[in-house]
């Protein structure tokens, strides 16, 4: 049952996820970015596990375990391997400066808080706070995707966005397990597809900078 302590812990873990999203925003090295993403997934896993305990919903433990196994271990390791095989250890350039990105991120967090607290005023406070945090994580993930030029950066942005969705799903009571598992596996499949595409891009253009794709289409920027 929702006691004050369990609410606070859930709140803290979800807030931690938002904080790690901010950390993702200012990573300018690929390895750092991937490690931070692993941390992101770890916090997500802890948050979902806490929800499982607080809601007394054992199937959420499975979700937490899936998050821990795939998102915190398998995917980061695979990404590291990809980077080694592609041989890109150089800095990632941000399109806009880090300061501006962080400011925008704060604005987004404020926006999602305002929206969620208003439209879900009569919902369960645990779910409501969770949803607000989850929306913030989703928006920050999108922001990450928008501000990166490197394809790996966009993949990480996409994955962190998906973590936000899982957080929202865990907060909603009665979400069937099959939905969560299928979401988890679809992300895995998406990751595989993106990985393959990355190598294809690399084979063809000798880089994973997506500017090469634009040049290939003959576009001006």
């Amino acid at each position: 049952m929702v006691t004050a302590l369990s609410f606070d812990i859930a709140h803290m873990l979800a807030g931690g996820l938002v904080l790690v999203s901010f950390m993702l925003l200012y990573q300018d090295r690929l390895h750092g970015l991937i490690n931070t993403y692993a941390l992101h997934a770890l916090v997500l896993s802890a948050s979902v596990a806490w929800q499982a305990w607080a809601q007394g919903a054992p199937h959420l433990y499975v979700t937490a375990a899936v998050a821990l196994l795939f998102k915190a271990l398998v995917i980061p390791l695979a990404l590291h391997r990809i980077i080694r095989r592609l041989g890109i250890h150089r800095d990632i350039e941000n399109v806009v400066g880090i300061g501006l990105t962080m400011l925008t991120g704060m604005g987004l967090v404020a926006l999602s808080m305002v929206v969620m607290l208003r439209i879900a005023a009569d919902a369960d406070p645990l779910a409501r706070e969770d949803l607000a945090m989850a929306l913030a994580v989703v928006l920050l993930g999108l922001l990450l995707m928008v501000t990166r030029r490197n394809a790996i950066g966009q993949v990480v942005g996409f994955m962190s966005l998906e973590n936000g969705l899982v957080l929202a799903a865990a907060g909603a009571r009665g979400m069937p397990l099959v939905v969560e598992i299928s979401v988890a596996f679809s992300v895995l499949v998406a990751f595989i597809v993106i990985g393959i595409v990355l190598f294809r891009i690399r084979e063809r253009f000798d880089t994973v900078d997506i500017r090469a794709l634009d040049d290939f289409r003959g576009e001006r920027r």
């Binding site: 399109v95 999108l142 995707m145 928008v146 966009q154 997506i210 794709l213 576009e219």
Partner: peptide
């Protein structure tokens, strides 16, 4: 460009 589309969606 892809990033423009993403920005538009965002």
């Amino acid at each position: 460009t892809i990033r423009r589309y993403l920005t538009l969606v965002f």
